[in-house]
Every structure is written in structure tokens, then in C-alpha cells.
Design a binder for these strands. Structure first.
Length: 577
DNA sequence: GCCGTTTTCGGCCCGACTGTTTTCAGTCG
């Protein structure tokens, strides 16, 4: 069993226990274990055999969990999990994701109406059976039907770039209103998660009623889900939910901290506050003794009172950032201004839209010192991939463009296909004449893990390969990553001085955040590139930077933060780290 | 189930909104 499967077992047990109404703290433990395993950068199954203390020593993992893990790894299942599945059908678990339904109601519907899945629930609601139950009236029944519809429609979350664009629109609109003194997006948008379920907007206003009224006039609201004195929830035309909260100025920092989350991060902070004799809420930090508010206007104050430095929002996932903050070991995260060039982009020679010169102009406008032109190779014939002859012609054109001293150095490169046997799609002779070779997989995504891993590793051992682009091949919401042993890939990359890409294209973000962290831990260098297909796309770098920051990446972990000379030494494999 | 500069037992985060409850439970974030 791999980590993902192990994690799913604990999550499912937590779901079932929750419906059964068992000890909430035991449930919380299971959830924590699921999260820990899901975000681990090494395999639980292998570690259990080789060095079990590597697992046992993780805070949150105790004796009970160790027993279950051993059982799962040895037999492929665990008795308690099987027992729970016999008690309650797993088909009812998705019901917990329907808005407005929690464990109590799911249990109630099962006990009294034998509702075992989404379809049963819809039938029961439509036939008016739900309203016969205690505590459920006509309104709740209608709300549930609506929630089922929403659940089916937006089972998926929206991509970060889309969420950022919507939240920017909303913030810009609110910013103009006189009733509103301050407005900020919080939540997973602020943490820059790769996908976002809803958008949280915080508003400071001394006239909350007026502010709420104006907020609800935002053009594009399709539906108002809830509305009170201090908050409102709406659905926008595109189906995205936006939650607004109105606050007083004095509590804005505490609210920003609170609504930025993550939930897991906040739980730990509150426990910490309590230990220190404080109470932390969205209204501030209060001294328990006399309920005096000691902080609230800024986030810095809140963290300072908890004896911590300000933790960057991208790190707030309870993945060790609080411990790191405590010991002064928070990383100095990379910023977009650290980037000095973009090493992956296409031109009209293959599937890009713009010329070499146009891309160079865009690079110059971005303040870059260098860019690399890396069009596709001939295996991608349908989009005009370059063969040896055309690549040589392009190289000559780049030489000419550099001669004209455009104010930016244009590197000659290629994105060469890694063929199914792990060889490259172009001859060494031509590749050796380039400044940079980016290699990637664009075919046969369904190979098994061992084959795919060997395919990629073979390519990484090729002495001319510099960067492995979009290493897992995933497309957010459209294509799963191919099955590959990333730890093996990273080890080979490090040993052969190959750099892994953080592809900033909004539906790729590949490597993703956890993989970035894994790379850093394994000593693998990264390159944050856009894979631009037109001049306007160089700005995608923001999303790659966000992903890297979530992966604890510093400027020194990324090769395109270096000056040209240092970069060239890495590309020549004379230097690494 | 996990954990320990109060503790190996007894804790384990906080507040708002909704609906239908006549005093609060369930859910959400």
C-alpha cells in the first residue's frame, strides 16, 4: 500500500466514526494521521521495514497508529477499518461533503430512512420524507436539494489562477466603496493553494449593515446563501462561492490570521494560546484571566503574543511551520523578484504564438537577464515539433537576435521529448550545440511505475539533459500524474546534476508544493519556469513562485535566481548547489 | 488516539448562522 492509500483508510475510518458519533478526539487523531501520511515525502511501507522509528517518532503517530499501519502494510487491510465498513456503507460518506449535512444528520437519515447514498437522499428529499424527521422542516429539505445540486456541479474546485482573478475583481470593487475601510482576501487564496473551494473576503467597516448591503450589490452574484449582521455568503455566476465577513478595525489582523487558516494551523495556534494563558479567536488574543484584548489589529501582533514570528501564509498548513517558527528556522522564501530569467518557453516555430524577438521583449519588460527558447522536438509532429535541421536554423536565428544586443541574453534550447525507451528525440550532435536542454514526457502516460521511472531516469542520466520539465505530467482537473517514483527520479537528478522544473502553467503547477519540499530535502535544484506559449504568459511565474513558496523553497534552491555566469556553470554541469 | 516544564490520567479550539428548538442542536469555517 502506498501513502495515498494508507491515508485514505484513516480518513475513511474518521468519517465513519464521526457518523457513529464516537469520541471526537479519536476522530481528530485519525484525521491528523491521514494528513501526516498524505504529506510525507517518503514511503511508509518501505520505512516500516527498514527503520520504523522514522514513522514512530513523528508527533501525532502513536502506538495505536503504528499497529494499524503494520497491519495495513502486512495484510493490505486493517480489522477495525473492515469492521467499520461492515457497520456503515462507505457509499454514504460523500454525503458528508454536501453543504449543510454533517455526521449527525447523515446518521439520522440512515437510521430512520436507510439513506445510504446521494441518490437515496435526493429521493427522500423530493418525496418530502425528510421533513417528517424531528428538527427538519421544509426549508432544510429544500436547502438539501439545492446543496446536492451544487455538490454535483462543483465537485471540483477552481484553479488558483481563476480564484485569484475573481478575488482581485471582488477586492477592487469593494475597495471603491466609501463604507469600506479595508478589504483583503484570506483563506486558501491567500495561502495560494493550487485549487480553491471558496473565496474569503474580509472587510473592515464601522458601518457593517451598510457594508453588507453594498457587498450584496456586487455584479455577478447568482445566489445569496446566507446573510447576517457580520457575514454574507454568495454564489457568483461561475459557481464559485464567496464568503464576506465584516469586522471592526481593531480585530482585522486577528480575523485575517483566523480566516487565512489553514484550519489545522489554527487549531495548533489556539492550543498554544491556551497554554500561554490566552484565548485566540477571530476577534483577537485575549488574556484568560481578565478577558482583556492584547492583540488584534495586525497579524504580527497576534503571532508575537504567541511568541512566534509572522509565518508566511503559504506555510500555514501545520506541516512543521510552527515548530520551525519556534526555533527560528523558518525558511527565507523565494520571491518573484528573485527570478532573473525564464528557461522554458515556446515560439511560433512549434506551438507558441509569438516570435523569438517578441519573447525576448517580454523577458526584458519583466526585468530578466536571460530567457531560453525551448520549442518542442519532432516527436510532437502535429504541433510542428522541430527536427534537427529546423533546430539548427532556429539556433542561427537566436545567434542573430543576440548579435542585435536586445538587452537580454537569449539562450538556445529545446524541450526534447523523452521517448518511451528513455532515449531523447534529437541527436546528441545537435543537442550539444545548445545552451540548455529541457527534457519531458509527452506520450504513453499510462506506463507502469517501474517502466515510467526507468524511462525518465534513463533520460536524466544523459549527459546533455539540464532540466526535467513538468516531472509528473499532471493537468489539474483533467489528467492525473503518471505513476512514477519521484524519490528515485530526484536521486538520479541530483547525482547527474539535473534540475527539476516547477512548471508555472496554471493547470500544471508541476512539481507541486509537496514535491518541491521533497526536492529541497533531497538536495535537488529547481527551476521555476512558465512554459509560455505567448509573450503574455511570462506572468505565470507568479503561480510557480506560489507553489515553490508552499514547498518551503528559498532563492538559493532555484537556478534561475542566479546571474547568467553562475547559471551557465550549472548548465555546463561544472557546478551544482 | 495522542500527549506530558501543572499531568501517565484527563485533557484535547472558537464563534456565527440557520432553522425550527420555545432554549438549542447542527453545521460551517
Amino acid at each position: 500500500m502506498n501513502n495515498r492509500q494508507l491515508s485514505a483508510v484513516f480518513d475513511e475510518m474518521a468519517d465513519i466514526l464521526e457518523i457513529k458519533g464516537e469520541n471526537p478526539f479519536r476522530i481528530r487523531s485519525f484525521r491528523r494521521v491521514a494528513e501526516i501520511i498524505a504529506t510525507l515525502d517518503f514511503g511508509v511501507a518501505e520505512s516500516l521495514v527498514q527503520d520504523a522509528s522514522r514513522i514512530r517518532d513523528i508527533p501525532g503517530i502513536g502506538e495505536g497508529t503504528m499497529r494499524k499501519l503494520e497491519e495495513l502494510v502486512k495484510t493490505g487491510q486493517c480489522e477495525e477499518h473492515q469492521e467499520l465498513r461492515r457497520e456503515l456503507p462507505p457509499s454514504m460518506l460523500p454525503l458528508l461533503s454536501v453543504k449543510g449535512l454533517g455526521p449527525k444528520r447523515v446518521k439520522q437519515f440512515w437510521n430512520s430512512l436507510q439513506v445510504a447514498n446521494l441518490e437515496d437522499l435526493e429521493t427522500a428529499a423530493r418525496s418530502g420524507k425528510l421533513r417528517t424527521l424531528p428538527g427538519i422542516g421544509e426549508k432544510t429539505e429544500t436547502a438539501i436539494l439545492k446543496a446536492i445540486e451544487e455538490y454535483r456541479k462543483q465537485a471540483g474546485r477552481v484553479r488558483l489562477d481563476q480564484a485569484l482573478s475573481v478575488s482581485a475583481d471582488v477586492v477592487a470593487y469593494l475597495h471603491e466603496l466609501p463604507e469600506i475601510e479595508r478589504v483583503e482576501a484570506a483563506g486558501s487564496v491567500r495561502r495560494r493553494k493550487e485549487t480553491v473551494g471558496d473565496i474569503d473576503i474580509l472587510i473592515a467597516s464601522s458601518a457593517p449593515a451598510e457594508a453588507i448591503a453594498r457587498v450584496l450589490q456586487f455584479p455577478g452574484i447568482r445566489d445569496v446563501l446566507a446573510q447576517g449582521d457580520t457575514k454574507a455568503s454568495v454564489i457568483l455566476g461561475r459557481g464559485l462561492q464567496v464568503d464576506f465577513r465584516i469586522l471592526e478595525h481593531e480585530a482585522f489582523g486577528a480575523a485575517l490570521q483566523y480566516f487565512t487558516g489553514s484550519k489545522e494551523h489554527n487549531v495548533v495556534l489556539r492550543e498554544r494560546a491556551k497554554r500561554l494563558g490566552y484565548k485566540l479567536s477571530e476577534y483577537g488574543v485575549f488574556r484568560i484571566a481578565d478577558n482583556a484584548r492584547l492583540a488584534g489589529e495586525t497579524e504580527e501582533e497576534v503571532y508575537r503574543l504567541l511568541q512566534l514570528p509572522l509565518i508566511p501564509p503559504e506555510l500555514r498548513e501545520n506541516r512543521g511551520e510552527i515548530e520551525a517558527a519556534e526555533t527560528g528556522e523558518l525558511p527565507e522564501l523565494i520571491r518573484v523578484t528573485d527570478i532573473r530569467g525564464d528557461l522554458h518557453m515556446h515560439t511560433e516555430a512549434s506551438d507558441g504564438k509569438d516570435s523569438i524577438q517578441a519573447m525576448a521583449q517580454a523577458g526584458l519588460a519583466a526585468g530578466y537577464q536571460y530567457i531560453a527558447i525551448t520549442d518542442h522536438s519532432k516527436a510532437l509532429a502535429m504541433i510542428g515539433g522541430l527536427d534537427e535541421r529546423r533546430l539548427l536554423e532556429q539556433a542561427a536565428a537566436i545567434d542573430a537576435a543576440n548579435e542585435a544586443s536586445p538587452g537580454i541574453r537569449i539562450l538556445k534550447g529545446v524541450e526534447v521529448d523523452i521517448l518511451t525507451d528513455g532515449t531523447l528525440d534529437l541527436s546528441d550532435e545537435v543537442l550539444s550545440g545548445l545552451d540548455i536542454v529541457v527534457a519531458s514526457v509527452h506520450s504513453r502516460f499510462n506506463m507502469n511505475r517501474a517502466e515510467m521511472t526507468e524511462r525518465v531516469c534513463r533520460a536524466l542520466r544523459h549527459p546533455l539533459v539540464n532540466i526535467l520539465a513538468h516531472p509528473t505530467g499532471r493537468l489539474l482537473g483533467r489528467r492525473e500524474p503518471y505513476d512514477i517514483d519521484l524519490e528515485a527520479v530526484m536521486t538520479v537528478a541530483r547525482d547527474h546534476h539535473v534540475v527539476l522544473e516547477v512548471n508555472s502553467y496554471p493547470d500544471r503547477l508541476d512539481l507541486k508544493d509537496l514535491h518541491c519540499r521533497m526536492a529541497r530535502n533531497l538536495g535537488v535544484l529547481l527551476s521555476i519556469d512558465t512554459d509560455s506559449h505567448s509573450a503574455g504568459m511570462l506572468g505565470f511565474v507568479d503561480y510557480g513562485i506560489a507553489t515553490a513558496r508552499r514547498g518551503w523553497i528559498r532563492a538559493e534552491d532555484v537556478i534561475n535566481t542566479r546571474g547568467l555566469d553562475s547559471l551557465m556553470r550549472i548548465l555546463k554541469k561544472k557546478e551544482y548547489r
